[in-house]
């Protein structure tokens, strides 16, 4: 069983946006946990397993880049699929950042909730395909 494949951690300091992401993902059948800042996100990642992380880039405390750094280089959560959302524009070196932390995607705000959801769905499918032993995949 690989029920965790739909377990998502959303790190977003913008309360209203965090709420609406949670609302939509939950409706789409994801198991969503919300962190309001970077430190909370790390604490949650340390305490329970997640298959996906959707994180804001700019946040008080630890920012998105620092979270990715911790996840990949200290916690060694190599299989965690990460999507970064940023209110920064193209001044962010998207390709370099993607390569550095093996990110699935970087979304620029204002992004489409529908796009985020289909991206996460495709990641779940990837997860299922890459693990042939999986008995069921909850979609």
């Amino acid at each position: 069983m690989k029920l965790e494949s739909r377990k998502v951690l959303v790190a977003e300091d913008n309360i209203v946006l965090g709420d609406v992401i949670q609302f939509n993902l939950q409706r789409a059948g994801f198991d969503v946990t919300l962190a309001r800042n970077g430190n909370d996100a790390i604490r949650l990642l340390e305490s329970e397993p997640f298959s996906m992380l959707v994180t804001d880039y700019e946040m008080p405390g630890l920012d998105g880049e620092q979270i990715c750094d911790r996840v990949r280089n200290e916690m060694h959560l190599d299989s965690l699929r990460i999507v970064v959302c940023s209110a920064r524009g193209h001044e962010l070196d998207r390709e370099a950042l993607k390569a550095k932390f093996s990110l699935e995607a970087i979304l620029f705000k204002p992004f489409s909730i529908r796009d985020l959801m289909s991206l996460l769905e495709s990641l779940v499918l990837l997860e299922c395909d890459s693990t042939p032993n999986t008995v069921t995949c909850s979609h």
Binding site: N14, V16, L17, V20, I21, F23, N24, R27, E58, A87, R88, G89, E91, F108, K109, P110, F111, S112, I113, R114
Partner: peptide, 25 residues
């Protein structure tokens, strides 16, 4: 410029997310 774009994109992101949600759900 960073701050201004952030300040402009943040409410825009919220407006887009909520209006899209209302359209979807």
């Amino acid at each position: 410029v960073f701050t201004a774009t952030h300040e402009l994109r943040t409410p825009l992101a919220n407006i887009r997310a909520y209006s899209e949600t209302l359209a979807l759900a």
